[in-house]
Computed example of a mutant assay.
Amino acid sequence: MLVLTVVLATTAEAQTEQQKSLDLRQESIIRIAGLTAQGNLTVLTRELEKGLEAGLTVNEIKEVLIHVYAYAGFSRSLRGLQTFITVLDDRKEKGITDVIGAEASEIKDERTKYTRGKAVLETLSGVPEKEPKTGYAAFAPTIEVFLKEHLFADIFERDVLTYQERELVTISILTGIGGVEPMLRSHLNLSLNVGLTPAQLQQFVEVIKTAIGKNEAKIAHVVLEEVLASRNNK
């Protein structure tokens, strides 16, 4: 009986530790997104291969690379996609058949894209949108509409990636391009809201350190500590 109790406790502890850790797919998403945002195509080529070997489908990686353009621009996204085409062609020549994976589901919600995007953002943030608009949304209302309709409706609604995975993509891009710490802070908070744990985000920083750069990881660590401290003080 004692042996069984010890085994069960050990198994439960192992499962808990596993839940605290990012898996290989998630680590690959971080590397691919950050390297694409930086334009480091030589290293990206290797990480795209590793991502496929870690279990990411072709469509999941394509979705990561598409997502990049919303934060780092079309040029970085397109170069990433072109690099991925080369990787897939090389693997095909070697006789490797990669899993294509699911396409994005059809959106059947008949609400306006602005309303749908607003709802997605409220789900991510956990709080209702404030009215009247302030800051950039009041200063440039057009960009606020673009954010709701395109970023949070057109992109985040695509279910090839989960909200957790999209937030990992986003914080990796923001860390890779640098100089956008307020946005990184916001998306680290969103990452926690959608179920990523502090331990997982600390692991994210370690992945950034090895794949993207020590300076980028140092900045991400500082911002993450600020976010965690702020949430603990509430």
Results as ranks from 00 to 15, higher is better:
Gly117Glu: 10
Leu121His: 04
Leu48Arg: 08
Leu56Asn: 09
Lys133Ser: 14
Asp90Gln: 14
Gly95Trp: 11
Gly126Arg: 06
Val64Ile: 13
Thr45Leu: 03
Arg91Gln: 11
Arg116Ser: 07
Lys148His: 13
Pro132Glu: 13
Thr112Cys: 12
Leu124Asp: 06
Pro132Thr: 08
Ile143Phe: 03
Tyr136Asn: 12
Val145Arg: 06
Thr36Leu: 00
Arg111Ile: 14
Pro128His: 04
Ser105Ile: 09
Gly95Leu: 10
Ala104Gly: 12
Tyr136Ala: 09
Arg79His: 07
Ser77Lys: 00
Glu144Ala: 12
Lys133Thr: 09
Pro128Asp: 07
Gly34Asp: 05
Gly95Ser: 08
Glu53Gly: 08
Leu65Val: 02
Glu53Phe: 04
Ala137Ile: 06
Asp109Ser: 09
Glu106Ile: 08
His67Met: 02
Lys130Gly: 01
Thr112Tyr: 03
Ser77Cys: 02
Leu124Arg: 02
Thr42Lys: 08
Leu44Arg: 02
Arg76Leu: 00
Ile96Gly: 03
Arg116Phe: 10
Ile143Cys: 03
Phe146Gly: 03
Val120Pro: 08
Glu93Thr: 09
Thr134Asp: 15
Glu103Tyr: 04
Val127Trp: 05
Ala37Tyr: 04
Leu88Ile: 11
Gly51Tyr: 10
Ile107Lys: 07
Val120Tyr: 07
Leu81Pro: 00
Thr115Ile: 14
Ala119Val: 10
Ala70Pro: 00
Arg116Tyr: 13
Thr83Lys: 06
Val87Ile: 12
Ala54His: 13
Ala70Phe: 04
Lys113Phe: 10
Arg111Gln: 11
Leu56Pro: 03
Glu93Arg: 13
Val43Trp: 08
Val58Ala: 06
Asn40Thr: 06
Ile100Arg: 14
Lys148Met: 14
Tyr114Gly: 03
Ala37Leu: 07
Asp89Ala: 05
Arg91Ser: 00
Thr115Tyr: 01
Arg46Tyr: 10
Thr97Leu: 09
Leu48Asn: 07
Arg111Leu: 14
Ile107Asp: 12
Thr134Ala: 15
Gly95Lys: 07
Phe84Thr: 00
Ala102Asn: 12
Lys148Glu: 11
Thr123Gly: 03
